[in-house]
């Protein structure tokens, strides 16, 4: 073990992780790669479309399985876990933020956030207070009972961030979080992500937008299915 690893335990570690789609036609979406992300890191994964960003995101989010290598989340080898356990990890240790928000339009803001506690055995009575606290973190505690359809794009993405935070996950996975937002709203959302990083959250942002990647402490680029480190962590 290196001195670096002794100092900080990696939240996420990829060892020779690859993903091959048998096709037809067969595609090697990710070539075997290594990566370690440490607690509190703010990492951006960039690359042109079709480079394998989404494949990596789905594997990191436990929605897909690698065809080779290992994916350790908090030290647990997730690749070999049964679906039952992977669901549990998704519910407890991973928070997703999607480009298209994925908010339920007929449910209130606070209900949308509390939805993240529906499946992880949280007590029913604890859900609303936790959802309100998460919304307070993203500055939306004044819109608790509003419908998502009445919010601006930036506000909607902040609701989605609150939903991702509500279970205090080990890892916040953001897929093009500003892809559907104008520049003002993008800035607001990125500011919030920056704040969360400062508060110790581990964040991975998948983006093709260099200005979004620039906000991260560390940038990894995917080129033709290969992970290439392009920027060192500041911390």
């Amino acid at each position: 073990m290196t001195a670096y690893e002794v100092r900080r335990e990696p939240v996420l570690r990829l060892i020779g992780l690859g993903r091959h789609f048998p096709g037809p036609p067969p595609v090697q979406a990710l070539y075997p790669s290594d990566l370690a992300v440490f607690a509190g890191e703010y990492l951006a994964v960039t690359g042109p479309s079709g480079s394998g960003k989404s494949t990596l995101l789905h594997i990191l989010g436990l929605l897909d399985r690698p065809t080779s290598g290992q994916y350790l989340l908090d030290g647990d080898d997730t690749a070999r876990l049964p679906e039952r356990d992977r669901s549990s990890l998704r519910a407890n240790r991973i928070g997703f933020v999607f480009q298209s928000f994925h908010l339920l339009p007929h449910r209130s803001v606070v209900e949308n956030v509390a939805l993240a506690m529906l499946y992880n055995r949280s007590r029913r009575s604890s859900r609303r207070p936790a959802a309100e606290a998460a919304l307070r973190q993203v500055g939306l505690d004044h819109r608790l009972d509003a419908r998502p359809t009445t919010l601006s794009g930036g506000e909607r993405q902040r609701v989605a961030i609150a939903r991702a935070l509500v279970n205090s996950p080990s890892l916040l996975l953001c897929d093009e979080p500003t892809g559907n937002l104008d520049s003002t709203n993008s800035r607001s959302v990125l500011d919030h992500l920056g704040e969360l990083s400062a508060n110790g959250y581990t964040i991975i942002v998948i983006t093709h937008d260099p200005s979004v990647a620039a906000r991260a402490e560390r940038v990894v680029e995917i080129r033709d299915g290969r992970l290439v480190e392009t920027g060192a962590a500041i911390r």
Partner: peptide
């Protein structure tokens, strides 16, 4: 670093009332 034996994770559930 080696992976540790996976712990038993509390399975996600959907209570009747929630459902």
């Amino acid at each position: 670093m080696t992976s540790r034996e996976p712990a038993r994770f509390p399975a996600t559930r959907l209570g009747v009332r929630d459902a």
